[in-house]
Amino acid sequence: MKRKLFYGLLLGFFVISGIAHYSHWDGTVQLILASLAVVFAAAFMGKATESVAHYAGERLGGFLNATFGNAVELIIAIFLIREGPSMHELVKASITGSIIGNLLLVLGLSVLLGGLKYKVQSYNAMLAGSSASLMLLAVIALFIPAVFKSSLVRWENELFSLLVAGILILAYILWLIFSMVTHKDELADEAVEHAEPMWSKGKSVLFLILATVMVAFISEWLVGSVEPFSQRFGLSELFVGAFLIAIIGNAAEHSAAIFMAMKNKIGAAVEIAVGSSLQVALFVAPVLIFVSWLYGSPMDMVFSTYELVAIGTSVFIAASISRDGRTNWYEGVLLLVVYVILGIAFFLV
């Protein structure tokens, strides 16, 4: 019964959101409907990914979970880039929001709710240390182009960003080799019990493709409604991209990480939250740089001071809390406090 209700709501919001877009309904109504539709589509994608992961194996399955978990943000950003250079700042804001949303909101809620149920939760300290170092690498890679921006002309900034993007993608590929091949045993965490898959292998792959297509359509509808919504309510692109779009795009990760933490599988929850942030910073953002070149409107990797401060602050507090491989509910509160403070600051900008 619950499954039928979910499928009904998924299909219903998808159809109504499409009608609202193509019939040119009020921009606010379009945004609300598209947001609800993408939340259900993201949940559907999460279920399909989990089912595929069961057949693919634990390591490859974890990679697929991270990849398709970020598919919503990637697809939304690609549609924004397609609109032209005027949307580049919104793309960067959405990247910022995805990173800080995973590190502060998703991880914060997971640590808080898991900690309320279990006094202290532990996970692989070596994995925590490696992840913290990679987060610092991401901050450095975003910080350097901003520092040298004034010393370079436009084409040099664009070329520098392209080179940095390529280096980050290489670093991410090497991290996958390190974590999934050469040091997979050292980085292994507690055994995670996998429930029986909802569908067969063929149906799982089919549903994953279907979910991705649905997210692509809804993302285009969502992007089309962002600008009129922002103008109507006087919201900055920074706030809309860094918080509104990021929260919507991270909907699938929110629930998955929290449920894992409440089952005392904090290692899996941290991997979802921190792993998603790392993938956005080291892979998704660099890929978007290359995508912008393909569309003929090169985007640089020069983030604003506000965005750099937000990312740097998030990485600092998340690395400080996660590096020892132990968490408690109050550390979750600390992460959420920083997220709320940044949210207020971005809203007032």
Results as ranks from 00 to 15, higher is better:
residue 3 R to K: 14
residue 3 R to C: 02
residue 6 F to M: 08
residue 17 S to I: 14
residue 18 G to H: 11
residue 44 F to M: 03
residue 63 F to W: 03
residue 70 N to E: 14
residue 71 A to S: 13
residue 76 I to K: 04
residue 78 I to C: 02
residue 79 F to D: 05
residue 79 F to V: 07
residue 85 P to V: 11
residue 91 V to S: 03
residue 105 L to F: 15
residue 109 L to D: 08
residue 110 S to H: 00
residue 111 V to E: 14
residue 118 Y to G: 06
residue 126 M to F: 09
residue 131 S to E: 05
residue 132 A to F: 12
residue 136 L to A: 13
residue 138 A to S: 15
residue 139 V to K: 00
residue 140 I to F: 10
residue 141 A to S: 11
residue 143 F to N: 04
residue 143 F to R: 02
residue 148 F to W: 08
residue 152 L to W: 10
residue 155 W to K: 08
residue 158 E to R: 10
residue 159 L to I: 13
residue 160 F to N: 09
residue 161 S to E: 15
residue 164 V to W: 06
residue 165 A to L: 01
residue 167 I to T: 13
residue 180 M to A: 13
residue 183 H to K: 15
residue 184 K to S: 12
residue 185 D to V: 09
residue 189 D to G: 12
residue 194 H to W: 06
residue 201 K to R: 07
residue 208 L to T: 07
residue 225 S to F: 12
residue 225 S to E: 06
residue 230 S to L: 11
residue 238 L to D: 08
residue 252 A to R: 06
residue 257 A to D: 03
residue 265 K to T: 00
residue 269 A to L: 15
residue 269 A to T: 12
residue 269 A to N: 09
residue 270 V to Y: 01
residue 273 A to S: 10
residue 279 Q to A: 01
residue 295 Y to D: 11
residue 305 T to H: 11
residue 319 A to D: 05
residue 321 I to E: 03
residue 326 R to T: 10
residue 328 N to I: 01
residue 337 V to A: 15
residue 338 V to C: 05
residue 343 G to D: 07
